[in-house]
Simulated assay, not measured.
Amino acid sequence: MHTYLSAALDIGGTKIAGALVDGTGRMTARVTRPTPADKDGATVMRAVAEVVGELTADPGWARVATVGIGSAGPVDASAGTVSPVNIPGWRDFPLVAGVRELVGERPVVLVGDGVAMTAAEHWQGAARGRANALCMVVSTGVGGGLVLNGQLHPGPTGNAGHIGHISVDLDGDLCPCGARGCVERIASGPNIARRALANGWQPGPDGDVSAAAVGAAARAGDPVALRSFERAAQALAAGIAATATLVEIEIAVIGGGVAGAGDILFTPLRAALRDYAKLSFVADLTVVPAQMGTDAGVVGAAAAAAQQSRLEAFLPTL
């Protein structure tokens, strides 16, 4: 039996999830709240407090040794603050201090949600056993994280591996981050749909203009929908190849809603990767779907906290 548990929070624009996670990756308790619609800073923090309150009431709380937070970003782990794009009421919000008030003396570790997903996939998912990996979430945005030399590499602020804001089109569209031609501006779900609509794709009778609807049209053979996914795949391949060239990753793991398109995304992505990953030390790079699904945020936040806090009960299985 593992002596310690790690408590974890996964905070995003849609939901706030919390869990107690043991040293095998099993969740012994799980709580979810919708992120308040008005996204006022104090209101969102109250929802976080409700989630933490339910966790502290669980009998397993007495064995919790550390608390991990995976948050939509940007985050600043060194300052303990978050400024999620999709939670406008939080700008340089002191989330770590707020959570620490709720959990007592336990150490609190903050990472970006892409880094949390990476920790989960390396511990229990598609990157398990790999020493060097890039894990990505391709959804409303594009985020990611790195494992280097067998260890999660969050970087000083908890944002390392944020592949969504590598520029792959130097004269491309302006990204909300302020740069041009970012991977996210081309490959995220809303941008796949935006590009398809701009090039003449017609949604079905239900009027669904989501990336999932574009994916369904692509599977049915719609050429405009297919080209929009191929363009997204090309941008992802360029970003993955650049990352691999810099740090010699051996595997790229892709999750998130857009990855749910399956071969519509992965087939052109693997083909494009062969065009960009040409050097001998990146030529064998593999790309696979993520395995952890919706549990990745909380399991990964627990893993990141355990690693940084050096919990003996977790380390053998991380």
Results as ranks from 00 to 15, higher is better:
Ala261Glu: 04
Ile192Phe: 06
Leu311Thr: 08
Val64Arg: 01
Phe93Cys: 11
Thr56Asn: 01
Arg46Lys: 14
Met45Asp: 15
Gly207Ile: 11
Asp284Tyr: 00
Arg130Asn: 11
Ala49Met: 07
Trp90Glu: 08
Arg185Tyr: 08
Gly125Pro: 03
Asp295Phe: 04
Ala218Pro: 01
Val214Ile: 07
Ala7Lys: 02
Phe314Tyr: 14
Pro34Thr: 13
His2Lys: 14
Ala235Ser: 10
Gly293Leu: 06
Val258Leu: 02
Ser309Asn: 15
Trp201His: 10
Gly80Leu: 00
Thr14Phe: 06
Asn149Thr: 11
Val287Asn: 13
Ser78Gln: 10
Ala198Trp: 09
Asp113Trp: 02
Val258Ala: 04
Ala271Val: 06
Ala252Glu: 11
Asn86Arg: 12
Ala72Ser: 13
Met292His: 02
Ser280Ile: 12
His153Asn: 15
Gly89Val: 09
Ala62Gly: 06
Asp263Asn: 15
Val299Arg: 14
Pro34Gln: 13
Ile240Ala: 11
Leu102Gln: 11
Gly297Gln: 02
Ile163Phe: 01
Gly262Cys: 07
Ala29Cys: 10
Pro316Thr: 09
Thr28Glu: 14
Val298Met: 04
Met27Ala: 15
Ala127Cys: 11
Arg128Ala: 12
Ala290Pro: 04
Thr286Cys: 14
Ile240Met: 12
Leu226Phe: 03
Asn191His: 14
Ala193Tyr: 04
Trp90His: 13
Asn132Met: 04
Arg100Asn: 02
Leu315Gly: 06
Ala244Asn: 07
